[in-house]
Design a protein around this nucleic acid. Structure first.
Lengths: 147, 147
DNA sequence: TATTGTTATACTCTATAACTATA
DNA sequence: TATAGTTATAGAGTATAACAATA
């Protein structure tokens, strides 16, 4: 490798890092603005995004998905339940476990949330269909998650 | 466009969104772990990353860069100053303005911070040089910032 | 009067530890 | 005893409003 190439690589790294931080910043701002329309706080919106309407999810698994403490999930689910978006259901075989199910209204809110994320929060609207595929493959390789 | 293509596009969008959130989550975890080595809190690290060693930056401009309130910057700069990484300098022409300069030790910490971000925080290490260029160009277009 | 930066204060989000109810 | 979830509490990070110094 020549010195010029080394410098060029370094510049690209710096640019990617700056772009990633810029991306995270703009996504956060658009996320907060978008969920205000749904009356959700950021942790509530993240939890709703993670919940699967085809499967009741124990509190503990939701905490693992959100990478936070179970005690934090209690308050988040309290808020979603007050808004009628989810319900706690004690598991039949082990009544210690409370599984979270998404209500009809919760499913609608989650769909609307995803629509807002694609159109306003994520940078997808600036890219063509082909570019989105390339971005997906690059991100999958970078994050280490096969698509 | 056929129905099959429409569905495929929708899937790609969902995948990109999931990957972006996964990316943000892993970057945050690696960021917090990396800056612990430098004895910096997340807001302190973000501020240090933003500061330019060639130009004294007024508190107010730093607040704008960090997209937060000036009152928040006071505490962040207090911490950086206690660690000897920056200094406040009243501007000569307008003594209301306190400009932030990065000390020698602050410059070293910032360089080390960038090294950690490239090698441990950002997903760059998973990509080849060619892929980094493609990612840079896609992110630049997506974020709307020409490189 | 207007502006820069600071202080006092309150709010949100989070984790830790102690608690309960089940197992 | 061990585990799922909750409660009480404390800490970090942030913004709003009132303030001092300077313009």
């Amino acid at each position: 490798m020549t010195a010029a190439e080394g410098t060029a690589d370094h510049d690209v790294d710096r640019q990617v890092v700056d772009l990633l931080f810029a991306l995270i910043g703009t996504m956060r701002r658009h996320f907060v603005a978008s969920i205000a329309e749904l009356g959700l706080t950021p942790p509530q919106a993240h939890a709703l995004r993670r919940l699967d309407s085809t499967r009741a999810l124990p509190m503990r698994e939701l905490a693992a998905d959100l990478m936070c403490d179970p005690s934090t999930v209690t308050g988040i689910v309290d808020g979603l339940e007050e808004r009628g978006l989810v319900e706690r259901r004690p598991a039949l075989d082990d009544r210690r476990i409370k599984a979270i199910i998404v209500t009809e209204s919760g499913i609608a809110a989650r769909e609307r949330l995803h629509e807002l994320i694609v159109t306003k929060v994520s940078p997808l609207s600036g890219l063509t269909a082909d570019e989105r595929v390339i971005l997906r493959d690059l991100l999958a390789k970078a994050v280490g998650q096969p698509v």
